[in-house]
């Protein structure tokens, strides 16, 4: 435990002495605030229109704009989800690749530490930065609560927002786990980032791509796609199936990383 924490702490130190964490924070803050402002103004326009024509005469797909929760917060989580997919590989890439490049892998492997402690420590460090990245986006629901008003009291339905946020954290944790495994396979950080991205993106899109495919491939693709698994969570529906799905991916990635770390010495 102590070793795991020592490694996690070292990972955090390194994240904040290299520019990557700051670049990722900046990208997340910049992109999410851009979309937040755009979504707010759309929300306002639709509300204006509704005041003139009344909701009954508005097209059905505008129904989401009746409240800030569905009209802004849930949609914003959808954007944050995509940004996470793009930035997480830049956070996970260094976890093992950098150690091998700097020959510090030899230090870790000859210290009185179990390989699983190394893997868990690194994963914990990665989790901490991705949580910090996602943590930045908490300001938006707070802004909405403080400045937004609604007829029904609170501007936001916090349980929905919080569950969606939980889904995001789970998603971030999954990206880092997969990225860590890929990082354990190579010495090149850029290659690790690229491969992670090349795994995450199609996996996210597979549902859409498989719509024209035959059964049973279509159902399988829909089931395993990240997009389909995340949808309910982001909308604030507690989805145990998705929880199990992502937790399994995380555990498997940790297991595979452990295997890869052990196997490294067998060449």
């Amino acid at each position: 435990m102590r070793n795991t924490l020592a490694i996690a702490r070292k990972e955090l130190t390194l994240y904040f002495t290299t520019p990557w964490a700051y670049l990722v924070f900046t990208a997340m803050a910049f992109i999410s605030s851009f979309f937040f402002i755009a979504m707010l103004s759309t929300f306002k326009q639709v509300q204006e229109m509704a005041r003139i024509y009344t909701w009954d005469r508005m097209p059905g797909d505008y129904a989401a704009y009746k409240n800030l929760t569905d009209g802004v917060a849930v949609q914003l989580w959808g954007v944050v989800l995509i940004v996470t997919l793009f930035v997480a590989p830049f956070l996970s890439m260094r976890l093992f690749a950098e150690e091998k490049r700097h020959k510090t892998f030899e230090l870790l492997m000859t210290a009185p530490v179990r390989p699983i402690e190394i893997v868990l420590g690194k994963y914990l460090g990665g989790l901490a930065v991705i949580s910090a990245t996602l943590g930045l986006t908490i300001v938006y629901p707070i802004i909405l609560t403080v400045f937004g008003g609604s007829e029904s009291g609170s501007a936001l339905e916090w349980s929905t927002v919080a569950l969606g946020y939980g889904g995001l954290l789970l998603w971030g944790a999954t990206c880092i786990a997969i990225g860590m495994f890929i990082s354990s396979l190579t010495e090149s950080q850029m290659l690790a980032a690229f491969l992670t991205f090349a795994v995450l993106l199609p996996w996210m899109l597979i549902k859409g791509l498989a719509q024209s495919a035959d059964e049973p491939f279509r159902s399988i693709a829909t089931y395993v796609s990240f997009d389909a698994q995340l949808q309910d969570m982001l909308k604030g529906v507690l989805d145990l199936k998705a929880l199990v799905f992502f937790t399994s991916i995380i555990l498997l990635s940790i297991l595979f990383t452990h295997r890869a770390v052990e196997a490294q010495r067998w060449t």
Binding site: K10, L14, H102, K103, E106, L107
Partner: peptide
């Protein structure tokens, strides 16, 4: 153990 290449983290 001191390996052939000292195992250092440059940014620390």
């Amino acid at each position: 153990y001191l390996p052939e290449t000292p195992p250092l983290y440059p940014e620390m």
